[in-house]
Amino acid sequence: MSDPTVEVPPNTRGPLHLVVAWASGKSIVGRSLKVAEDVADSLRMHAEAAVASLTSPAPYAADADLEDDSHFEAERSVLMDELLLEEVAKANSLPLATIDELRHRNLLCHAVLIGRADNRCMFVRKRSPIQLAKKSMIATLMDGTLDRVSTPIFAFDDRYDAIITPTKLFILNKNAFEGLFKESEAILARTGEWVDDVAQSVSMTEGSTEILVSTLRRNQFLRRKFLAVRERPHVKQMTPRMLKEEIVRNGLSVDDLMMGDQLIVTPSNVKLVLQLLNEDLFIGGFTQGHYAAGSKRSMS
């Protein structure tokens, strides 16, 4: 019997399937591709190389940046948009892609799925594997003669953006991962819910939540910052007194940022407010200068 406390790496054994996907309105369309045995062997080797690179993990946070040779790890619950995942997971039950689709569709991603349904791992790349498909003419040199290539040319490597197991996420490219699973229209439609969640703990003046929602929908950087704020334990327990003390400690004006016990959010101070709530503001230990961190990683 296996020990549940032992970390199990992503599976690279079992049936292998290749899937591509694209957006169609608010829907996701997936297609499977048949692969020859030698191609499947190469794709499996790429997956094994990606798993072997998982040597320096860090916990995922919306406002953290990846360092060299590191990756983020998180529970599957971090995924916010399951629509793409559900379509890709259909694997070989999807219709086969046609040459016309591969030529003319703007592919959102491709994924290699390995294993059976209960232990299947997805190796996802936010990139089309098709090279030169839209050139007017492609030729290859065969026996000293250029011959025209009439079908799309595929190119693969081991640089996956995310590895998704039944219980866990391994994030190797944070921007690409969030572009696939956290920035779809379906997710952005929930921005008001996120703001309301925070407003339950941090009371805001009239109109402030509307300004936040409008800003977060159009600004990717501030949206990530807000999602980090939303998960901070101290924000869920925030009191007006705590907020005022933090404002003063950082050398800011309570009158500019608070009206009574309510936080004031304006188009010009949204970034500052989020930095304050996310503990991004700090005072230099030697110079006593005031600074703001663009990103940070927990040391605990």
Rank of each mutant, 00 (worst) to 15 (best):
R44E: 11
D41M: 08
P267G: 08
N92S: 15
V254E: 15
L66S: 08
R103Q: 14
V213Y: 01
Q262N: 11
N173C: 09
P9K: 10
A58P: 00
R31S: 10
L272I: 11
E7L: 13
E185G: 05
G294R: 13
A155Q: 11
P10E: 05
V202R: 03
Y291H: 07
S150Y: 11
L180M: 15
L172V: 03
I171C: 02
L108K: 14
Y60F: 15
S300D: 11
G260P: 10
A176H: 13
V265K: 07
R223E: 03
L277Y: 02
C109Q: 00
M204W: 05
V229W: 02
P15D: 14
V195L: 06
R76D: 03
A52L: 10
L96I: 11
H104L: 09
V35D: 01
T215G: 02
R190H: 06
Y60I: 07
Y160T: 00
K174Y: 03
V195K: 04
K236S: 15
G260F: 07
A117S: 15
T167S: 14
T191S: 09
V29Y: 03
F154L: 14
P267R: 05
S253D: 13
G30F: 04
P57S: 05
D68T: 10
K271P: 00
A50P: 08
A139F: 03
A155K: 10
